[in-house]
Amino acid sequence: MKRWVPLVAFLILVGFFAKGLFLNPREVPSPLIDRPAPAFELPLVGNDAASFSPADMRGKVWLLNVWAPWCVSCRQEHPVLMQIAQSGRVSIVGLNWKDRDREAAMLLARSGSPYLAVAEDLDGRVGIDYGVTGTPETYVIDREGFVRMKHIGPISPDVWKQKFEPKLKELGA
């Protein structure tokens, strides 16, 4: 019996490797899931006098979309976000992450804004509170202010249909 041990051990390894080929090593689950969204109070892009806080969104299911003008894949998801915003399905709040050149207002004026509001996180501290590692990242936050889902990378129409829609339905949005 003993002589089959190496083979069995190896076959188990192969099973894991096969699974591993379809995993994305970049996709790191967020510990924030099912926890209250970290509170913050940040000025709005283009209007330093006004500010945004997640508390403002109580009672609504909403998306927090972390992006930056210098981020290329954010441009990829921009049209998808525009469509979502136009459909009125759910409100999207932008978190303008580490935009040192402060180009966000100009860019949004030019290409249109899918956002209800865009908060300005210049030094990236709020980003750290949300566990942001890069842009774009999108959080789904429910009526009670709990983070229910996090998506890393641009939202494509497929991702929207397969990942976001079911979650939003579940949350009653």
């Binding site: 790191v28 689950p29 967020s30 510990p31 924030l32 566990g131 590692t133």
Partner: peptide, 8 residues
């Protein structure tokens, strides 16, 4: 750090 980024 782990509260934000997990054990990773």
């Amino acid at each position: 750090l782990t509260a934000r980024y997990g054990d990773f």
